[in-house]
Design a protein around this nucleic acid. Structure first.
Lengths: 106, 106
DNA sequence: ATTTAATCGGCTTATATATACCTATTATTA
DNA sequence: TAATAATAGGTATATATAAGCCGATTAAAT
């Protein structure tokens, strides 16, 4: 398999689906049960596992249903609170920095 | 923040969006540029960052555009090939196991 | 080899997201 | 403080996903 950087989003989606299916099989739970726990339809889960398009909500619900906290942490980790840094740092930037164009002439 | 297990999918989606925004800011790239690189609209990126619903494809395109290979690896890692295990193992199960119901009576 | 539950994929309708365009707000530079 | 680029959020239309149903396929137990 090629480096991730060279994969298209579609390919990554397929890989992701395969991974989720492997996760489910490793836990020996059928699609019916996972879909039920996740509160989604079996069809939505099939589409997710086959990489045929799904929503972020479907993905997160499925990860939750699979108890894959590791993956969720990676996606949405608790903010790393470094107590020391906290003392010295101001609030983080909320926008990107830019250098402003100078008004030329006139 | 409570344990991930107790968060709803919506909350996780919001967390994810915040994380993605932090990632972008850490790289000092504006939404316009990321959206451009990802091949999605700025609005789609805003919806993703604000946790207002998006697709897996939009998520993956954005991760790619941010160069967040780490997150992608976590979501869709290369299959771990253990050469030793490979020799001894048969093909992995493709379905969930079940114990079959016995036909009663008759 | 037979049985059968798990999985798959097509279909239709409902719902949600993506796009494009717009105006309003605001963090940050200068 | 004033200027302005970055961001936010609304709307309308196009497109994609979700749900629910179905019949066909097939891995795996027996």
């Amino acid at each position: 398999m090629a480096d991730i950087v060279f994969k298209t989003a579609k390919e990554l989606q397929t890989d992701l689906g395969q991974r989720l299916r492997r996760l489910r099989l490793a836990r020996n739970i059928d699609q019916r049960t996972v879909a039920g726990k996740a509160g989604i339809s079996e069809k939505a889960l099939r589409n997710l596992e086959s990489g045929n398009g799904s929503t972020v909500e479907t993905l997160l619900r499925t990860l939750k249903a699979l108890g894959y906290t590791q993956g969720i942490e990676m996606l949405a980790p608790e903010p790393t609170i470094d107590p020391l840094a906290l003392l010295h740092r101001a609030k983080p930037p909320q926008r990107v920095r830019r250098t402003r164009k100078q008004k030329v002439g006139l």
